[in-house]
Every structure is written in structure tokens, then in C-alpha cells.
Simulated scan of single mutants.
Amino acid sequence: MDWKSDVPRWRQVYEVLEERITDGTYPPGSQLPGVVALHAEFGIAQMTARRVLSELRQAGLAQMQVGVGTFVTDLPKP
């Protein structure tokens, strides 16, 4: 996390998680860290963590299961 960067914090965390999804660290079907875990790992506000998860869902990389968590979707084959 580069606190002095012009890139918004949510975007920096988004890019880290996107990389972890595409490199297989978080394979399809696996649960992503929740808001509290993202807050602890990256030192971001919980509202920022919620935005990161929302942006991942909007990009089609994740889906939320209410009351359970956010999970990686099946990625299209290149």
C-alpha cells in the first residue's frame, strides 16, 4: 500500500485482490477476505474495504452470498 500514491486506496487494494484472483491465490469458488480482514491487512477503513468488494462484484470477479461472504467467480478462459 502506497499511502503517498495518487491512486485511490480502494483501487490499490482492488488491484492486489485482482492479481490474487488471476494468479490463483484465490481460485474460483474460494472465499475472499471480508471487510474486517481487509481492514486489518491493508490498514484501510471498513467503508473502503466494502467498496473494494463491491467493485470486484461489479467487475464480475466475485459474487456475494448474503450472510456468508464474497466468493471468487469462475473466470472466463483466455
Rank of each mutant, 00 (worst) to 15 (best):
I21F: 06
V52S: 08
V72N: 02
S5I: 15
D6V: 15
K4L: 15
Y14I: 05
R9A: 13
V72H: 00
T48H: 01
A59R: 03
A37K: 11
P78R: 14
S54C: 04
A59Y: 00
Q63F: 15
P8Q: 09
T22D: 13
E41I: 05
G29F: 09
E19W: 15
M47N: 09
H39W: 02
A59H: 03
A49E: 02
E41W: 12
Y14C: 11
E18Y: 13
K77A: 09
L32V: 13
V52Y: 02
I44C: 03
V13Q: 06
W10D: 13
P76K: 14
V52G: 11
D74R: 10
P78A: 11
D6W: 09
G29V: 12
V68Q: 00
D23Y: 08
R57I: 02
T48K: 01
T70G: 06
T25M: 05
Q58D: 10
K4T: 15
G60K: 02
E55R: 08
V35H: 05
R51Y: 00
A62W: 00
T48A: 01
G43C: 10
Y14K: 09
G24Q: 01
T73W: 07
L17K: 06
I21V: 06
D74Y: 12
V16L: 10
S30E: 06
P27H: 06
L17C: 09
Y26M: 04
V13L: 06
Q31N: 05
F71N: 00
T73R: 11
E18H: 13
P28D: 03
I44Y: 01
T22A: 13
V13I: 09
L56E: 02
V13M: 06
Q58L: 05
D6N: 13
V52C: 07
G69N: 03
A37V: 07
V16A: 10
F71M: 04
E19M: 15
E19T: 15
P27R: 07
V72Y: 01
L56R: 02
R50D: 09
Q46E: 09
R51V: 00
M47Y: 07
E55G: 10
M1A: 14
Q12L: 14
V7M: 02
P76R: 14
V7E: 01
A49K: 05
V68M: 02
S54R: 05
Y26V: 11
P33M: 06
A59T: 01
T22P: 10
E55N: 10
G24C: 02
V68T: 03
P33Q: 06
P28L: 08
V7S: 01
A37N: 07
L75Y: 03
D6T: 15
G67T: 12
L32T: 09
L32M: 08
Y14N: 12
V68D: 00
S30R: 03
L32Y: 05
L17N: 08
G43H: 12
K4S: 15
G69I: 12
W3D: 14
P78M: 12
W10N: 13
Q65D: 08
P76C: 14
Q31M: 08
L61T: 04
P76M: 14
T22F: 14
P33R: 05
V66M: 11
R50P: 11
G60C: 04
K77R: 12
W10H: 11
T73E: 11
